[in-house]
Design a protein around this nucleic acid. Structure first.
Length: 585
RNA sequence: CGGGAUGUAGCGCAGCUUGGUAGCGCACAACGUUCGGGACGUUGGGGCCGCAGGUUCAAAUCCUGUCAUCCCGACCA
């Protein structure tokens, strides 16, 4: 490709609406153009990168025995009603109506469709196991799209779905996909860590996310990991053992004390001069419009995903002061946050809301607490020296709701956990019968009985992987693409196109590389050398061959973008170096 | 959905306080001088100043509404 023909416009400045480095770089280097919030055009350079990632994914998926197909992007409501997700998926599902007022949606993922296809075709255990995948644009109407390609609304995804007759076969396929993913990301030049995660709206039991580790804002997930063993988990799923803390108070018996204007755990611990770990913290949440009060040890935080899963809800948020007053405010109690508690709750307002009555849940940390401090739903008062079963009833539901912190102990080996940020580029789920059962997707087993498929699903964000690669590989001058996913392998830059020897040598190098199957660009523009070098660095060609004045001595300059190392050598050596590097792919 | 901000040429911005019919840099086109890390000069093309109302002789500028975009929070494959 001649640079003069390449459809690209690099910018002198970063666009003002870009926040993270991958977005800034890709926009400035002419890879992407925003159409509307969270929706981007992939310009020719970007499309080449995406196709390369797709091809790596395709090769590894095919090698792993999966078969590619392509499902429709627009989907009918009926299938989503069958799976129960027309209600459950929430506002992220982009819904629309056709001219007959039939309700449809844009595919955010394809479990419903693939399950419907499978049940029509996979009738016998003899056809199983099998794994089907596609690479396609998805649409999710994100509340707040941001970070360019990292969290767009429209994005390209590879999604695979496996069908098996047993948990053993699912386990096998899960491991098979795990291995394929490891190869895929490695080939893309990305270091990833597989971490345990919550399965979210997709549902199911076991799941792992493949994270590109990056300690920047672009990493939207907190990952807890252990250096000593292989434990690693997303914060929404991580568990830990706690360092010792004081959980038994010094009070002889339970008494109510005045705690005027004390609204937070911090203030309360200061006021009473005690450890926060002696206080039972009560937080009022609204989950799917119903009030939920969650109890946890005062020095710990609630992990909302865990709470949501415990209650079985979809939408979660902290209640407003007004709502707390509405829900809890009775008997002269102002219901100011800070004095809420599970005890002393008037039966009247437990029942007042009918189906929306208050649910109480507790984190495991509170169970072991004794002689503790707790809110009793009375303004400016707390109970000290309280005990479960005597002064306060422990909620029926006691489970892990706690957000892990760095410094907690690894649940596997007991060493201290560390935290880092990660970009999720892939995930694998064991769905089991989550979709096959409600959708009545069954096969006939050897014993002649109809059984639901044991399913798994496996996703890779193609466009997100490209952005993550930029996050991982760049410097102040621009992108440093890994060779395997770079839009072109090499850029050949004659310093002056007026110089006949420079130009003819560059042209010769270019021709030789093209003939060898190398993806080369010849910068034949009548620009000053500085412009060409800046563009070359910004666009991120893995190699640059500069043909300048030293060509009179038979030398060209060979630049490796990854290290910015420059070496003087003969043209034929430079050609060989590029060909050799490309051969390793 | 809460809080904050911004919409003026492809990109980055000024002009708005104090209304008088739009400007700068980059990019683009032409010519000339340049030519190893984003050159310089001259000339030129490109804007319903987000949109709709209102006030006014006159609105990019003041008022109201609306839409869009971005940031923080909330939420999240």
């Amino acid at each position: 490709m001649k640079m003069s023909n390449l459809f690209v416009q690099t910018l002198r400045e970063f666009p003002s609406d870009a926040e993270v480095i991958s977005h800034k770089m890709l926009a400035r280097a002419g890879y992407i153009k925003k159409l509307t919030s969270g929706v981007y055009t992939y310009l020719p350079l970007m499309w080449r990168v995406l196709k390369k990632i797709e091809n790596i994914v395709r090769q590894e998926m095919d090698k792993a025995g999966a078969q590619e197909l392509l499902m429709p992007f627009v989907q009918p409501k009926e299938l989503w009603v069958e799976s129960g997700r027309w209600e459950a998926y929430g506002k992220e599902l982009m819904r629309l109506k056709d001219r007959h007022s039939r309700e449809m949606c844009l595919g955010p993922t394809h479990e419903e469709i693939i399950t419907a296809i499978a049940r029509d075709i996979l009738k016998s255990y003899k056809q199983l196991p099998t794994n089907l995948y596609q690479i396609q644009s998805k649409f999710r109407d994100e509340v707040r799209p941001r970070f360019g390609l990292l969290r767009g609304r429209e994005f390209i995804m590879k999604d695979a779905y496996s069908f098996a007759t047993s948990q053993e076969d699912l386990d096998k396929e899960y491991q098979n996909m795990w291995n394929a993913y490891t190869s895929i990301f490695k080939r893309c030049g990305l270091e990833t860590k597989a971490v345990q995660s919550d399965s979210g709206a997709i549902g199911g039991n076991v799941s792992h996310e493949f994270m590109v580790i990056t300690d920047t804002d672009a990493g939207e997930n907190d990952v807890f990991y252990c250096d000593e063993c292989d434990y690693a988990a997303n914060s929404n799923h991580a568990i830990s053992n706690l360092p010792p803390a004081k959980v038994i108070g010094d009070w002889e018996k339970a008494i109510v004390v005045d705690t005027p204007n004390v609204h937070s755990i911090e203030e309360l611990s200061e006021f009473l001069n005690i450890e926060p770990s002696l206080i039972v913290k009560a937080l009022v949440y609204i989950i799917d419009k119903k009030p939920v009060i969650a109890l946890i040890r005062g020095d710990k935080q609630i992990e909302e995903t865990k709470l949501l899963n415990t209650v079985g809800g979809i939408e979660i948020r902290i209640a407003t002061s007004e709502e707390i007053a509405e829900i809890m405010g009775e008997n002269g109690f102002n219901a100011i946050p800070g004095f809420i508690g599970p005890c002393n709750v008037n039966k009247k307002y437990l029942e007042k809301y009918g189906e929306n009555k208050i649910t109480f849940v507790a984190d495991e940390t509170v169970k072991e607490m004794k002689n503790f401090v707790i809110g009793i739903n009375e303004t400016d008062k707390h109970l000290v020296g309280g005990n479960w079963g005597i002064d306060v009833d422990l909620p029926e539901t006691v489970t892990d709701l706690r957000l892990v912190e760095a410094g907690d102990f690894c649940p596997k080996c007991g060493k201290e956990l560390k935290v880092t940020r990660g970009i999720e580029v892939g995930n694998i789920f064991q769905l089991c019968t989550k979709y096959s059962k409600p959708m009545n997707a069954v096969y006939l087993d050897a014993d002649g009985k109809a059984k639901p498929y044991i399913m798994g699903c496996y996703g890779i964000g193609i466009s997100r992987t490209a952005a993550a690669a930029v996050e991982a590989h760049h410097d102040e001058w621009g992108i440093k693409w890994p060779l395997a996913i770079a839009p072109y392998h090499v850029n050949i830059v004659p310093v002056s196109i007026q110089d006949e020897l420079q130009m003819s040598t560059a042209q010769k190098i270019y021709n030789e590389l093209l003939e060898a199957g190398v993806e080369a660009v010849l910068d034949d523009r009548n620009e000053r050398p500085g412009v060409k070098f800046k563009d070359s660095d910004l666009i991120g060609f893995p190699f640059r061959i500069t043909v300048g004045k030293t060509i009179t001595d038979g030398q060209v300059e060979f630049v490796t973008r990854a290290t910015n190392e420059k070496i003087s050598m003969k043209p034929e050596e430079a050609v060989k170096k590029v060909i050799d590097a490309v051969k390793t792919l």
